[in-house]
Amino acid sequence: MAGQAEPIIRVRGLRTQFGDQIVHQDLDLDVRQGEILGIVGGSGTGKSVLLRTIIGLNRPTAGRIEVFGQDLANVTAAERLAVEQRWGVLFQDGALFSSLTVAQNIEVPMKEHLDMPVRLRDEIAALKIAMVGLPPEAGSKYPSELSGGMRKRAGLARSLALDPDLIFLDEPTAGLDPVGAANFDQLIKRLQGNLGLTVFMVTHDLDSLNAICDRIAVLAEKRVMVIGSMADMLRHEHPWLREYFHGPRARAARLQQDEVGG
């Protein structure tokens, strides 16, 4: 599937604005099928806003957003629903419905969109629980009884409920300890490989960028300033990029990577 010419997400000339404040201007971005794209940028550069705009939670002021080749501004409600069933979203803290158990959370999209018998639904929910590495007894727990890392895994399982082609992750490793974060990175990488997913990931975590992202897009000056591999980032001369990718934390992350690699 990878390497196909048609991008799975195509953003052209995007402009988002809140009152007088312009967040994005003339922003272009392509996400290729089957890749893991990491979005980085300083605080307030509109990384999460970009994610929310692509999935339709914010209305862009101008510009065109195509997902799966469809312009989302000009689709009927039914077409939009069809697109929405092909993507999954993991919000920062999982955004699980607090009145439902983990398994019931995972079943929500299946119940809503597919006319599945209860037994099959339970079987598939159990499968997803295992796929994201949660123990069987986690299925009957309520979100408030779970740790942060488990909530994220459960959120990921819910976003995978309908076997999407594309998933959006908003800071998937934020708030996890380094071990948990590394495990979560590997989980994403493994699922992406096994399920042929395309992953759009907003992150601050240099380790994640290094370990799992195929390409990195840097948001700065209201647009995507650079997009490319980690090696491209390291070669780039822009002061912010130099600071970000050559700073002390970046060196530590790279060092670690070299040790593992060598």
Binding site: T101, A103, Q104, E107, D122, A125, A126, L127, I129, A130, M131, L134, P136, E137, A138, G139, S140, K141, N194, L195, G196
Partner: peptide, 22 residues
């Protein structure tokens, strides 16, 4: 090969789960 990988993935994760608290 892709189907085989998918079937293996499913087999590896065949584990019953609790849906609701008793």
């Amino acid at each position: 090969p892709a189907h085989e990988a998918m079937l293996e993935q499913v087999e590896a994760n065949d584990q019953p789960a609790e849906i609701e608290p008793p």
